[in-house]
Each structure stands twice: as C-alpha cells, then as structure tokens.
Design a protein around this nucleic acid. Structure first.
Lengths: 102, 102
DNA sequence: CAAAGCATTAAACAGTTATTTATATGTGTT
DNA sequence: AACACATATAAATAACTGTTTAATGCTTTG
C-alpha cells in the first residue's frame, strides 16, 4: 500500500494539477523553460496570477525555477511529471469524450 | 500541444484525484474490485460518502463499476490510471518530504 | 410479495480556493 | 543613485466543493 502521510502529499500534487489555469501554465513551460511574462502573455493572464500559481506548483516541486537576469524561468521539475501528464493524456483520449463530471 | 477541450478534461481528472478521501478510495480498489461497503468499512467512512465519491470517479472513467448481486464492485478503469499513480508516487518519493503547499 | 441488505440520490452546511487589486521586492540600466 | 522592468506578495472578494443527514432505489431472500 502507501504510507499515510504520502496520501496527502500525493493528493496535493493532483489537486494542484487539477486547476485548469495551473494546468495550462504547466503545459506552457513543460518542454522549455519559460519566463513568467511570456507565460502570462501567451495565456492572456495577469502576471500576478501566473506568479501565484507558479509558486504553488513550485512548492510541490512540480516546476523548478531559475533566474536569468530580471526574468525567472520555470519548467517541469522532472520526468515523472511529464510521464504523469502523458499517461493521463492517453487515458483521456482512450476513454473518449463525454465525461460526466458534475 | 493539446487540444483546448482536453485541458478541462485533464484538469477534471487531476482535480478528482486531488482529494485525499477520493484518493484513498481509489487506492482501496486499485488492485482488486471492491464493493462500496468494504471500502467504507476499510476506511471508516459512511457508505453515502463513498458512493458519492465513486460516482464522481466513475463519471471521469477513473473507476469502473460492476454489479454482483446486491453489491457493486469498483476498480480502476485502466492501466493508465495505475501508471499515473505509480509515476506520481515516484515523484513524491524522489522530491522528498517537506512540500510547502500552502 | 414483503422484508432486509446494499447502494444511490438530494439538499443543506461548512470549509476551502481561485481571482482581482494594490503594494512590495529584486535586478539591471542610464 | 535613481529609474524602469520583471516578478513576487498580501488582503479581500466570490465561487466552488466535501461532508453530513435523510430519504429513495435496486436485488435477493424468506
């Protein structure tokens, strides 16, 4: 099974990826390090909002930050994160559309 | 990239797995089909609560239901779900404890 | 067919969380 | 050193969601 304290950590991971805005932010910087401003512009979001979400993602080690001059570049922390997204993507595609969530 | 409508589906998946109670329920029936009552007893939860969460998980095709007599047995829908949990588990273990989420 | 067992549904409450707006911190430039 | 740029933080609001309680729906058994 799984150690109890890991449940909350795991759940936190999933919960953080479970917000549409955060997920779009994550996808924007999944392949190449991208700075806050570019993410914000690319998605049509305010910089504070993007920064805030990135802080949460960073706190869970889902993304990693690196400062270059004035800008801070974010990218996915490790391959497991990419693997998770890939597998979940496959699931959604195979399970097909028409998910009733509500 | 990813088709826009998939973002919400993907986010829904993660969001659903992002609740500690739901995640524990999912883990309980991940390997072998388990009925609502057994899940509830095993986790010390009420049957209505477990049933409610299973309905949400089922709506997203995260679990699959099968009726056998009076009981309804639930289990993980496909291998992708198990793969996602395995990868995320590895990430949490490697990233180590001390995640600052708040 | 009535009763009991198991699961589901519905509605109300309580707690949490994403977003906005305003302010502050850091970094490089003139 | 002052300015401009990029990011980060804080507080307030508004929307959402998990849990509880009570009632309803299916299946088999007596």
């Amino acid at each position: 099974m799984l150690r109890p304290e890991h449940y909350t950590d795991l759940a936190d991971m999933f919960r953080l990826m479970g917000d549409p805005t955060r997920l779009r932010i994550l996808y924007t910087c999944i392949d190449a390090p991208t700075c806050v401003g570019d993410i914000a512009r690319g998605l049509g979001l305010s910089a504070p909002l993007v920064s805030h979400h990135l802080r949460l993602l960073r706190g869970a080690r889902i993304v990693r930050a690196e400062r270059r001059g004035k800008r801070v570049y974010y990218t996915a922390d490790d391959e497991h994160i990419r693997a998770v997204l890939a597998d979940m993507g496959r699931h959604v595609r195979e399970a097909g559309a028409g998910l009733k969530v509500a």
